[in-house]
Amino acid sequence: MSAVLPHAPLSVLSPSPAPVALRLDGVTKRHGAGGDAVVALDTMSFAVKKGEFVCVVGASGCGKSTMLNLVAGLDTPSAGKVTVAGERPALMFQESALFPWLSVEENVAFPLQMQGLSRKARAARVAELLHLVHLDKFAKRRPHELSGGMKQRVALARALAQQAELLLMDEPFAALDAMMRDHLHSELETLWQKTGLTVVFVTHNVREAVRLGDRVLLLSSRPGRLVAEYQVDLDRPRRIESPEVARLARTITDRLLEAARAAA
């Protein structure tokens, strides 16, 4: 971690620090003003290395969504600084948020269209992305014709189309059944390995976090504070029901409950 601290000494002889995809420096977010102000995030600092898969867990009210909004540039912090490498990050939600008036391929093409790509360039890229999420055959379908899992895969393809270095995911699989979730975990892991993306994955499911993350950040509630972080040194691909995942998940859950008791 020392490599990403702002005041870390930088020796010529030491290997260059891993490039950072996202950095939060003392970020605070207050909603409202004066005496009614609610602190959603309290002096939060952390960094995510390029290509890292970081999961953020916490009970409701821990400011997960606020944090994602700040990182996505949809909101500005009350204090502190958010630094994002590259262009605007891509963001995936719990609901697919596909545009119902567009076909699957038009949805995936949308960010490319916003970037001003030609129709021809868009078509080639969209075909590639739909192939990546195994939905080639469904290019002409409308979102309402797809199941929940397929919709989330289209949303993933659309997020990847943005060519962002950083992919933010806001409980993207929370609305799916357990089996579909397992399946999409594998798919996401494969895609992440193929593309070298940096992923920040917010969830309230601790096992999911351990299943996916290189690192798990634990936030406390009201105000949202970074209370602990866990390095997940388990081989991939992992299985969500494996004892190693379960063991670490239990440790994190215990710490989470402790934080919740302290807040109450």
């Binding site: 949809l74 939600f93 609901e95 948020a97 949308f110 916003m114």
Partner: peptide, 12 residues
């Protein structure tokens, strides 16, 4: 609002 948010994130 979710669609508006999604659109903004993608640069609209």
């Amino acid at each position: 609002p979710l669609l508006v948010r999604a659109g903004k994130v993608m640069g609209a």
